[in-house]
């Protein structure tokens, strides 16, 4: 086959997919802005996406905070500047690691679950059944998941921030012989509100990415179990990449000045 034809085919497929995703996202957003909203379903999804992700986010944050304290200590020890451990742990967790790791963990858990659930509903005609029952599938399936993810991700990240800093505190005071009072005072003195809010804003965007990619992949899955499996994998991989890319863009915007 002509190599140019292959390249052209890839480019056209990518453009087509981008266009479909953009239209899907636009349709979802317009449905969010138009009532009614199914609050009962939003509540259910908040439980599934947020509450049930809490253990994995908490554990990830705790160990990340701990390991961050260790690495910063071993690095700063060479320059006799161990006192920065508490500050860097707090900044690292709230600005970057808290939202990004929570985003990736929830992408692995929730985006996969959303894509698998909606994908199964697609291939078993349950989404078509919704339409025949005068129920808009976007309003009933997509909107509650997006709203729930956008609301719960910041809450998860906030809890994760606290636990991550606590992980650093535990390692700092138990293994590295930091004074607990000094550690807490340093953390509080150097941590600013913007550090926390920037992470929470990021996590809200990550929640949007996770829910949209999960719903989009599930909605467009076809070909039975194989198609659902492919949709699930795509949802996790693409949402993870988009989270990392969006994180870079937002960090550039928030902290460039």
């Amino acid at each position: 086959m002509n190599p140019l034809a292959i390249i052209g085919n890839v480019v056209l497929t990518a453009l087509g997919e981008t266009g479909r995703l953009s239209l899907f996202t636009w349709t979802a957003v317009t449905h969010i802005l138009r009532p009614p909203l199914y609050w009962r379903l939003i509540g259910q999804q908040m439980m599934r996406i947020g509450y049930f992700s809490l253990p994995v986010v908490a554990l990830t944050s705790f160990f990340t905070g701990g390991v961050l304290a260790l690495q910063i200590y071993y690095g700063s020890d060479q320059f006799n500047s161990e006192s920065i451990v508490a500050t860097i742990v707090a900044l690292g967790i709230t600005r970057e690691l808290g939202p990004v790791l929570a985003g990736l963990m929830v992408a692995g858990r929730a985006a996969a679950a959303i894509a698998a659930e909606l994908g199964t509903m697609r291939v078993t005609e349950q989404i078509d059944a919704l339409t025949t029952l005068s129920t808009n599938p976007f309003k009933y399936l997509v909107v509650p998941r997006i709203v729930a993810a956008v609301i719960t991700l910041p809450a998860l990240v906030f809890v994760g921030d606290v636990i991550g800093i606590f992980g650093g505190f535990v390692v700092g005071t138990q293994s590295l012989d930091f004074n607990s009072g000094v550690y807490i005072k340093t953390t509080v003195d150097f941590l600013e509100l913007d550090d926390v809010t920037s992470g929470l804003i990021k996590s809200s965007i990550f929640g949007f990415i996770i829910a949209v990619m999960g719903c989009y992949q599930g909605f467009h899955s076809k070909g039975g179990a194989l198609g659902v499996g492919r949709a699930t994998t795509n949802a996790v991989v693409i949402s993870s990449i988009l989270i990392l890319a969006a994180n870079y863009v937002m960090t550039s915007l928030f902290f460039s000045s």
Binding site: M121, T124, E125, Q126, D128, A129, T132
Partner: peptide, 12 residues
């Protein structure tokens, strides 16, 4: 409209 689907398409 009402519709009966081939595999019933009930909501799991």
């Amino acid at each position: 409209f009402g519709m009966l689907f081939q595999n019933a398409a009930l909501f799991d």
